[in-house]
Design a protein around this nucleic acid. Structure first.
Length: 472
DNA sequence: ATGTCC
């Protein structure tokens, strides 16, 4: 579908419905970010053709090209109106997300032991391709427990604190997981990777709170200026990837049976209330739980190193997923409807007062964690009243260069030297992998966050800067 | 993102 966005408000553009589009497209962006979105806007228009789509096909300020759906896209469908679920609307890395922990130590206090801390984290954080995991050989029962119980199962088996679960979306476990819909191959891939970072833009960073914008919310989140934090960005590894591939194939074969036509095969989908739709949602929830358990185990690995090297404790601030579809209740034109909300490279941002928040965060709103590009800032945001796009906001910087382009433009060793010269300790698993994640390959995360705030999607709480990077 | 093609 062609897309001709027209400005209709500050940081807000509209793509008028044409052809098979059932609803408009709405893009939240500055003029500069809109230009960087490029052909991803055609994907935003394509999503507006899906059966049962409600309200609009939305794009966050960090929108960029993805598989079928743009990354940075939000789309809700109504199952009672033939609404579909599409694996492409979640992405290959199901439940990819971010976990932030706050240390009871400040940056000046940590500085003398930073190098030793990084040397401790280096072997303690399994990463790269096929190179081990924190939970080495989970049995069949443990794997099934992880798929249905997520972080909760990990905590119940000694990998964390009960309080952690209050700081995870859905209490650490998504309901409705159906391990029976997870293929043998997905299980086999997943069994070897429970508690591993992966590669690409996934990382574990030791950070410092550089600036606080909203002192009341920062206090509620347990954050103060100069405090040390740990941010973990990872997903569901080979398991989620295999599940996405398996179910795209099944839906591609089944679409004709439901009389569904889509403008791009990568938008393969099935009605939420169909055998294929239910199968995918059950497997997706299992992968979501696997992703949370993965972050839980990596957090435990970081906790052990912090205790041993710095005598410091790490408290969980929050854990968010930015690749997921969920059944949620929303008001649409004054009417309460249960919708299937796809967020792909977009984060749920519940507003202050929302019943889905733990009591001590209810006044501040939901923490939203925005990983920056290596060597640049990351942000903590919060949901706002009247949040748009089904209470969603951005998820990160978003690429502007392909991996190949980035690797051609930068030498990994030289990049490490320049980061170290800025006082950022780097522990990389491969030089090429490091070069592919060069800051030049990404949009300016600060511009993304400014646009998100300007568009009324979220508000800034704090900015974090890296002290040390453990790179996948 | 991903045992970067079963």
């Amino acid at each position: 579908m062609m897309a001709h966005p027209v400005q209709e408000g500050p940081y807000r553009y509209r793509i008028e419905p044409t052809g098979a589009m059932r609803v408009p497209g709405v893009v939240f962006a500055s003029a500069g970010l809109l230009r960087e979105a490029g052909r991803a806007l055609e994907q935003v228009a394509n999503v507006a053709t899906l059966p049962g789509v409600v309200d609009a096909s939305y794009a966050m300020p960090d929108v960029h090209w993805g598989y079928g759906f743009a990354i940075g896209g939000v789309a809700a469908t109504d199952p009672r109106d033939g609404g579909v679920v599409s694996p492409g609307g979640v992405g290959f890395d199901i439940s990819c997300g971010v976990r932030l922990l706050a240390a009871d130590i400040d940056a000046p206090g940590l500085r003398p032991v930073l190098e030793r801390l990084m040397d401790g984290l280096d072997p303690a954080v399994p990463r790269g391709m096929g190179k081990g995991a924190v939970w080495r050989q989970p049995g069949r029962a443990d794997l099934a427990g992880i798929l249905t119980g997520g972080s909760r199962y990990a905590v119940e088996h000694g990998h964390g604190e009960e309080r952690d679960l209050l700081r995870c979306e859905d209490g650490g476990a998504v309901a409705g997981a159906d391990p029976g819909q997870v293929s043998g191959r997905a299980l086999e891939r997943g069994a070897r990777q429970v508690g591993s970072l992966g590669s690409g833009n996934h990382f574990l960073e030791v950070q410092r709170v550089a600036e606080v914008y909203d002192p009341a919310a920062a206090e509620a989140f347990g954050l103060a200026r100069d405090q040390v934090c740990v941010m973990i960005h990872c997903g569901s590894r080979g398991l989620g990837h295999q599940i996405c591939g398996d179910h795209v194939r099944a839906m591609d074969r089944g679409m004709a049976r439901y009389g569904i036509e889509v403008p791009d095969r990568q938008l393969a989908c099935a009605p939420v209330d169909s055998a294929e739709g239910r199968a995918y949602l059950g497997a997706m929830a299992a992968a979501a739980n696997y992703g949370r358990a993965n972050r839980q185990l990596l957090a435990q690995a970081a906790r052990r190193v912090f205790r041993r090297v710095a005598g410091a404790r790490l408290e969980l601030v929050y854990d968010v997923s930015h690749n997921l579809a969920k059944l949620e209740d929303h008001l649409v034109a004054g009417e309460r409807r249960r919708l299937c909300v796809h967020r792909k490279g977009a984060t749920l941002a519940l507003p202050p007062g929302h019943p889905g928040l733990p009591p001590d965060l209810r006044e501040a709103g939901q923490p939203v964690l925005i990983p920056g590009t290596m060597g640049t800032a990351s942000y903590v945001l919060a949901g706002v009243p009247g949040g748009r796009a089904f209470f969603s906001t951005c998820h990160g910087a978003g690429r502007v260069q392909s991996r190949h382009q980035a690797a051609r433009g930068v030498d990994g060793r030289r990049l490490r030297s320049s980061l170290e010269a800025e006082g950022i300790a780097v522990r990389a698993s491969s030089w090429r992998g490091l070069a592919e994640e060069a800051p030049a390959a990404y949009k300016d995360v600060s511009a993304v966050v400014e646009a998100g705030e300007g568009a009324g999607l979220c508000r800034k709480v704090a900015r974090l800067v890296p002290l040390g990077v453990v790179k996948g």
